[in-house]
């Protein structure tokens, strides 16, 4: 297993007047080289803050207080060496070389992420000049080539365009061209298609899949859309309240979800392939970020809540048979001691 990025026990907290919001709280996951990891969860679950922590772009009052982000890259001898991004200075030369170069990011609102007062050609070449030893002319050639790769018609002319002259889908293509211009080994895509229409979304996803295969890069695909993840990702991490509650191969998770939160999320979706009169809902709401909950963070809303267990013991990630990591006490000793498995009871009757 060729791990490109390993996040261990990452903790990013926001220190606010109301208290400390643990946006990312002991998050652990890994991304393999050339693979697509889908990160899903509802708003406020910490998926975007995790991405920003990796890029070292968390602004005060947010701080990454603990954890490791191990990024492996070839050193001078061609050997693979891993460095902890959290040990680097966020504004230092090394981190600046990685950010935008080896690890690139695209955002949800493509038009807001582009400068409204600079021509898109200048914005792309700026990034290339920053990360590669090329002349201005060469950088422009690379920019045109990238715009062609993301299927922007009349690429040369478009260098002189401003963001407001392009549609949302086109702006997202420009963002992708900019992100990929330095051949990153990891692309972090934070809700890249959420603001786009379905047919435009289909175009962008198709483009990303093609480029991912061509350039052999890994993608961390952050979204709230379980359908998009099912289609795009090799591996899926489900987040709830700052923690990864389940991670495993996409095929396995969608076929047989293990964590009660994953199960509930999938059940609450209106589906084209099934007829349901009423949708399953998850009771309650996501707890206030400043509150501290004992035990499992999901226990207040969980359908399988066991009193005296789930509200007291903090679940640790455990690995199940198909290499699936689940943070749930139902799969541990604790649950068995407290109550006999329901399945056994019903088999006798």
């Amino acid at each position: 297993m060729d791990t490109l990025l390993e996040v261990r026990d990452l903790q990013t907290h926001f220190f606010m007047a109301e208290g400390v919001a643990k946006a990312v709280d002991h998050t652990t996951f890994s991304i393999r080289r050339g693979q697509v990891l889908g990160v899903v969860g509802e708003s406020g679950c910490g998926k975007s803050v995790t991405a920003r922590s990796i890029m070292r772009m968390v602004r005060p009052p947010g701080h990454t207080v603990d954890g490791e982000i191990l990024y492996s890259r070839p050193d001078q001898n061609g050997q693979s060496a891993s460095i902890d991004l959290l040990q680097l200075s966020a504004t230092g030369t090394e981190m600046r070389a990685i950010r935008g170069g080896e690890i690139a990011m695209i955002f949800q609102e493509p038009r807001a992420s582009l400068s409204p007062v600079h021509r898109i050609g200048d914005q792309i070449t700026e990034n290339i000049l920053l990360h590669q030893a090329v002349s201005r002319l060469e950088a422009e050639e690379i920019a045109v080539d990238m715009l062609r790769q993301v299927h922007i018609p009349m690429a040369e002319q478009r260098l002189d365009a401003f963001a407001h002259q392009l549609s949302g889908g086109m702006c997202q293509r420009v963002m992708i061209a900019m992100a990929l211009s330095c051949h990153p080994s990891l692309l972090i895509a934070d809700e890249p298609t959420t603001a786009l229409d379905v047919t435009t979304e289909a175009q962008i996803l198709e483009l990303m899949q093609g480029l991912q295969a061509d350039l052999d890069m890994a993608i961390m695909f952050i979204t709230h859309d379980l359908g998009v993840v099912a289609d795009m990702a090799d591996e899926v991490a489900v987040m709830y309240l700052g923690k990864v509650v389940e991670q495993g191969a996409a095929a396995d998770i969608f076929r047989d979800p293990k964590h009660p939160y994953t199960i509930a999320l999938l059940e609450s979706l209106p589906r084209l392939d099934q007829k349901r009169d009423w949708l399953q809902t998850i009771r309650g709401v996501v707890p206030d970020p400043y509150s501290t909950l004992n035990g499992c963070p999901f226990h207040t809303r969980c359908a399988d809540f066991i009193e005296g267990v789930c509200d007291e013991i903090v679940p640790e990630p455990i690995t199940l048979e198909d290499n699936r990591e689940v943070r749930c006490l139902l799969y541990t000793e604790h649950a068995r001691q407290e109550r006999p498995p329901v399945a056994e009871d019903s088999s006798h009757s």
Partner: peptide
């Protein structure tokens, strides 16, 4: 047909139909 094909089913990979990608814009 194109709209329907662009809907992603939150299920295992085999449940995804052929995606029709429309050229151009609205």
């Amino acid at each position: 047909e194109a709209l329907l094909s662009a809907v992603h089913v939150a299920g295992p990979a085999h449940s995804q139909g052929e995606r029709i990608v429309l050229e151009g814009e609205v």
